[in-house]
Amino acid sequence: MLLSLSLFPPQASTNAAEVDALYLFLVALCSLTAFGVIAAMTFFAIRYRRRPGNEVGADIHGSTVLEIIWTAIPFVILMFVFAWGASLYFKLSRPPEDAMEVFVVGRQWMWKIQHMEGRREINTLHVPLGKPVKLTMTSEDVIHAFYVPAFRVKADVVPGRYTTLWFQPTQTGEFHLFCAEYCGTEHSRMGGSIIVMQPAEYEAWLAAAPGGGGLPSGGSASLTPVQLGKKLFTEKACATCHLPAPGGVGPVLVGIYGQQVELASGATVKVDEAYIRESILTPLAKVVKGFPPAMPTFGGQLTEEQVMSLIAYVKSLSDGAGSGAAVPAAPAASTPATLAPAN
């Protein structure tokens, strides 16, 4: 009992049992194969050991039939394992639509976490039981990897772009969070915990210290990402060109999230977090068709948290983002309209 406990991390997500099932299948398959080959070799070694009357081996060249059999059978089995692993991977890489979002920024050597409701934490992530959670992650410096053994998930956290990871906790409690990609001196201490709470407790926790978490964050601590993004949208004069209705120098951002847009190059691109990020930091890379390449770059002027907040705000301008709940986001068109004249 004690032994079996230590051979597996806790099974604390909907994925965990499925990953374990494939693991156990492979353990069985591989043990059987290894046992078969070793048993055959042991049998041959004893049965055909050299002794009087057995001075030389039989004159055998091989057997094409056997070769075909032991090429084809492993091939078929391996393709089956591939299909199983790939289908699991699809599930693990595609977060459900209704997943709640959390921003994660990795840096040497800590995890900075930003909840959509405004609460921030470091090296600890509180999540409610039973709800799918999607992490949007980036790094401020080197490559890290966000790894939660109890959920059987891991994803690299790469500077300059977003990666995502999702899970749905099935057990309350505290679980290990590790950095799994070597990132320098304190790599082995760049970890913490995931705390899974009952939804009601989680709501209470969120409400307890809005924006708190004891982090100094330049006066914007009490704002949610959408609120912070909205503030930045004004401060950085984005609203000057991105008007709520056609006619501005830049494209209208209302309702744009999740859409396909045509680029000046003729290609199309889906407006997702990665594209919005790219358009803020290197705006001339993919200019939308019909607009002048006039936007100044904001690369180097925004922290990762600020970029994420701007994205959260742009997303909140479209329906169905779900993450804009903290602001009256639904009639999106009116919100920037009130902003625009301010600049």
Binding site: E18, V19, L22, Y23, L26, V81, F82, W84, G85, A86, S87, L88, Y89, K91, L92, A145, Y147, P149, R152, V153, K154, A155, A180, E181
Partner: peptide, 10 residues
Amino acid sequence: ALGLDLHVHD
């Protein structure tokens, strides 16, 4: 095996 590697990688 893709889905399993996400857990055991690194």
